[in-house]
Design a protein around this nucleic acid. Structure first.
Lengths: 124, 124, 124, 124
DNA sequence: GTGGTCTAGACCACA
DNA sequence: GTGGTCTAGACCACG
């Protein structure tokens, strides 16, 4: 479905963001086991080391837990997930608006754009 | 206000984006002369080579024109600027909204967030 | 009390060290039978293979002897145990004190720390 | 002088500990620049990637700061260093004593051992 | 030359 | 088969 990488920003960071999003929006529920490093790496057509680095990063952020040789699991601590959810969404929305404003796009234009997009989706 | 660099994405690209935005939103009007490399580099506290590279990039995109020793000027061809304007704005809005959707933020949430922000600004 | 594993150092080595310590300080006396692999593994919540490997290691060091289906016994050769005792204690003390010195902890600081700890224990 | 690695514990962790110790006891003073990754790697006869990983770790602990292409510096925040100092020393001493106790070494024996060592050093 | 990313591929501990 | 470490070597951004 996804795994398309933008150059310019390091791949492993894009992976971190992607998986963090998947945790936030429930694709990987709290407490569930995520696929093995090698599988994820293959799926993303990326070297296993790169994927591992991304997962380590998420581990050190407390979103994932490595349980020895059994596999990696999404943290059972839902408050960590909730907090990450809040922080991440706010950061993305803020960035969105700031970037738009730098280009001279007004708030109204953003609203209009989103509204149109929404309408478009209903047609499809 | 500006010139704050996010690591992860190369500095020279951030500069390109920034100056392109300044051209689009009229800070550097069509046909006007932009400050010398050294000044821009100093203002951004960046190595002159880096600024140089960013400006070359914009030249090759047709937004800037080097005129020998006289300096660099924003293109007089307003249609190029207009086209860049359209493309850039659309690209930025699309990219950011997709990012938001990946996090599970709905269109309505975006509109709400922007509306609140707008209200906040009126207060200030 | 025991069986808490520090990551970073392989579990089977930690087990070897633990059991060697138990032999040295008499918890498993010379000539006595140690519990079956399965029991030890369960107690340490570790895979039987891992426990097996640790015991084999101790066998090859001459501290344990497998006697067919009867079970595993601590060696009857007390001089082996005594020698291991001397070597191990010396090695541990030397290693740890060197580690402390690398951090710039002086001998006096070590003595002070140990003395305080001793005092603390008398209170309890 | 140093750079001798114990197998069993990952090299990059031993490097982290070693450099942390060097920062704590002032070999790399607060605010000073540390040698380039490649040099440190060569000195430790280790792959540059491994050294880099160790340094990244220290960076994320706040003890080092990467300043773009200029090099890596020990943090200027001396309170971070002081705090690390306290925590690290305490941890090492506590571990020392616990390991000794597991072997049945009494506090008095530790004190005696250290005292003898101290006397030995005065002779030399 | 300096830090950083990425790949490829080997090897180990553990189940 | 699963996570983890390490090496070797290429390539990029930046100064």
């Amino acid at each position: 479905m996804s795994w398309e990488f933008n150059s310019n920003v390091p791949v492993f960071i894009q992976i971190v963001d992607k998986i963090r999003a998947d945790i936030i929006n429930g694709k990987y529920p709290s407490g569930s086991r995520i696929p093995p490093v090698r599988d994820l790496a293959a799926e993303a057509s990326v070297n296993p080391n790169t994927m591992q680095r991304a997962l380590s990063e998420l581990e050190s952020q407390g979103l994932l837990e490595g349980r020895g040789t059994i596999g990696r699991f999404v943290t059972g601590n839902t408050s960590v997930i909730q907090k990450t959810n809040d922080i991440t969404k706010n950061a993305v929305l803020t960035k969105l608006i700031e970037e738009a404003e730098n280009l001279g796009i007004s708030d109204d234009e953003i609203i209009e754009f989103v509204t149109k997009r929404k309408a478009g989706k209903n047609d499809a």
